[in-house]
Design a protein around this nucleic acid. Structure first.
Lengths: 148, 148
DNA sequence: TATAAAAGATATGTACACATATTAAATTGT
DNA sequence: ACAATTTAATATGTGTACATATCTTTTATA
């Protein structure tokens, strides 16, 4: 049995390829966000005032990691954090004007590069692949949180 | 367009799930190897005397990362490194007796946990998924190295 | 209400992942 | 043979990813 044929290994390779395509295309378009930073910004734009734990839950991140990701988004001037008045443990995160503008500018590039990742698959194969991936994720995240 | 439906995001989530299943099952079986360490050990057992760059190429790792991975395998007593007499820049890596024994002991667990990762898919869906994943990888690694 | 339990965030430590730079050794070209 | 290039490995720095511990604040409970 070769490790290279195992689901775990194939998934690792796909993730590697996906990250490389993302980095290359974003750099080519003059943007400077990692996949994780983009996903976090997406969540924050979609739900202004969300707290860090909410961002983590929304995109299935680790709580301990999200702080650093949002740190970097803050350094770039894309988001701001304020202590919540409802719950002083929580930090409410909002996209700044610059962050919203950046998101709008970057989104088309991100959407466009997605088809690069699955290039080599026909339209119907792409749909199949996405459906199967979603199924794997749904099955394995039942015990964590409800999907939406 | 929600980031959560994009191929890149789904692939990241699958990789996350895959890594978690691997860690949990390995720990449950009393083993202590990461997915990357296992894949490296697999490559070294399959090709004794391979150099570090060879290991990296064989499993599509980053050259700069593989040194640290092999460091950790060496600390566990699973592999040994010797300067090649043919090319004194290169380090020939070999599995020790303990490393080979560990590999044989661990392999069944790793094989077994693979079906956990794709649980939720039927047999035929699993085969479909693996074929599509392989296609994505082959397409995106054409410019790097030949597959085998 | 005092205490316990839970939750949001941060800090620490380990392990990738990769870009870039550096060092040493081998290879190539003239 | 010698300089230029390439290659193997290491070093450095940034960015995840996650377990665990700690701190603060909130909530639940006796």
């Amino acid at each position: 049995m070769q490790a290279r044929k195992m689901p775990g290994h194939l998934i690792r390779r796909m993730n590697q390829i996906s990250s490389q395509v993302f980095a290359m295309r974003m750099q080519g378009a003059g943007h400077d966000l990692t996949p994780v930073q983009f996903a976090a910004l997406d969540a924050i734009v979609a739900e202004p005032g969300i707290d860090q734990a909410g961002v983590a839950a929304r995109i299935a991140y680790d709580r301990a990691t999200i702080g650093g990701v949002i740190d970097r988004l803050e350094q770039k001037g894309f988001v701001s954090r304020t202590v919540s008045r409802k719950d002083r443990r929580a930090r409410e995160v909002n996209a700044t004007a610059a962050g919203q503008a950046a998101f709008i500018a970057i989104l088309p590039t991100v959407i466009d590069l997605q088809s690069d990742i699955v290039r080599g698959l026909s339209e119907s194969e792409q749909a199949q692949f996405l459906a199967l991936a979603q199924k794997i994720i749904d099955q394995n995240s039942k015990e964590n949180e409800a999907a939406d």
